[in-house]
Amino acid sequence: MKSRRMTRRGLLTTAAGAALLLGFGKVSAQESRPVWMPFDGFPPADSMAEGLQFLTPDEARTVGAIVERLIPADALSPSGKDAGCVDFIDRQLSGPYGVFSGQYREGPFQDGTPMQGDQSPLDARQRYRLGLAALDGWCRANAQAAFADLPEDRRDAILADLETGKITLDGIPAELFFEQVLANTMEGFFADPIHGGNKDMVSWRMLGFPGARYDYLDSLDIAGTPLRLDPIGLKGGPSWSADWVPPSAPARKG
């Protein structure tokens, strides 16, 4: 129902007069329009979520132990785990992607040729739930410890065997599980930090990608010069704070 607010149009002053009037805080009204709504910003629904949304703490620990080997910390960047890939994957699974809601899921499910792509009846959540449990089961049986408690080189070897299918997991093809985690880890590492991964835009800094910017009109006539723009995400970055100091450009060679 439409209504117009009358703050200033001079009403409600009547009997009670000025003193009461001063006490009134806000005046509220709703003007509903079908096509456009105030505050419609479409932020990712899960971008403000706190804590684990889908994974159990044990599962999250195993995922962390995987992603820190898929993207190990090195001179270029921190590890996938420190970059927030576990948070990213957890939120991703809790959302529509977790049930592959954008895909045809009715079957029939049968093995296709490699060219026909993914034919598994399992959605992303099931792949993690089954895969993580099966991986830990395999590790306890064959290495006498949970995956997350194994040393790095042992974890690397097991991940390599998952990738090639040398290890057989209960309930899910090992390659399928490996591919799923690898793909989501890369997404988490490079996606906008609003989704929980790519903390402090580490991957963007590594690549020199300036982030979620609109255009570079004012840089058109300085072609060939490195822009050295500090990256910004959808919710900004360090350069938006008042005390930010631009990183000094490395001395240029003549």
């Binding site: 439409k2 005046v27 509220s28």
Partner: peptide
């Protein structure tokens, strides 16, 4: 019409609400 025609209502048939902190006119 801006004030006396409510959306979806008959022309000039009124019914538009002016919300104030002390109730609606």
């Amino acid at each position: 019409a801006a004030c006396h025609t409510a959306p979806g209502g008959a022309p000039l048939a009124g019914g538009l609400r002016f919300e104030t902190p002390v109730g609606a006119i």
